[in-house]
Design a protein around this nucleic acid. Structure first.
Lengths: 118, 118
DNA sequence: TCCTTGTTCGCATAGTAGTAGAACAACACG
DNA sequence: CGTGTTGTTCTACTACTATGCGAACAAGGA
């Protein structure tokens, strides 16, 4: 199963689906031009509603990552794989540098991040 | 007015208040030992409810940035690292938000940070 | 003591997410 | 061409969260 979802998470299911697809694109697991599973089938396999999947897909369309057309489904349009990751790594590096300046130990940094993730 | 809030934003008011105080601490606009406005007065001046402000304050206490005591109010932790930590918490929060949008799991985020620390 | 301030209740309201079902319109494909 | 697939749109309902509101309470300061 390519996409996953956690109903217990406070993050909305539609957002989780969008994030899951974003990640798949970023990691190259789905390539430009490739078709994503239809909203109905994905909704079925995830155990969520059709509209929920569509909400996620439409969000990705607004971001310019996929195209949606009736009868054809959702297709990846752009290869922006490295962009998101690069900007994320930049933030990680800023965070680490600043934490070092403050004299935090590695585990303290990890602890802060875990706290932020909670 | 030191703190502001946007009722039209999708971000919860309590979170906005916490972020606003975090920024003020990080930028040195409020210094360690300084008293923040009382929850009641801040709620009044922001036009929000007392509980909403308290929720933001309590979040900051969980992060170790302020202390809350009855009769005395909210005081910025008398620790020279408070400011740095506030700024660090901002970075952590930004990082976590972006990582979530990319669909990374918690352990992947922690892994990236560990990688950055190495 | 009196006043301030955070803490903790309970409850009401508004907005959002998710579910559900149905009909419809564009597209692919044999 | 016709048929099935797929996204689009609509309405309605439930559940949950954020916020608001009021009240009483507890700890602390002046």
């Amino acid at each position: 199963m390519l996409f996953r979802v956690d109903p217990a998470s406070p993050q909305p299911l539609g957002d989780q689906i969008a994030a899951s697809v974003r990640r798949a694109i970023a990691e190259g697991k789905v390539t430009p031009g490739e078709r994503l599973p239809s909203a109905r089938s994905l909704a079925d396999s995830l155990g969520v509603n059709l509209h929920t999947v569509l909400r996620g897909y439409q969000r990705l369309r607004e971001e310019g990552l996929i195209e949606l057309r009736r009868g054809r489904g959702a297709v990846v349009v752009d290869d922006t794989s490295a962009r998101g990751r690069a900007s994320l790594m930049l933030r990680v590096r800023e965070l680490v540098d600043q934490a070092r300046e403050l004299g935090l130990t590695e585990e303290e940094v990890v602890g802060l991040v875990r706290e932020g993730l909670a």
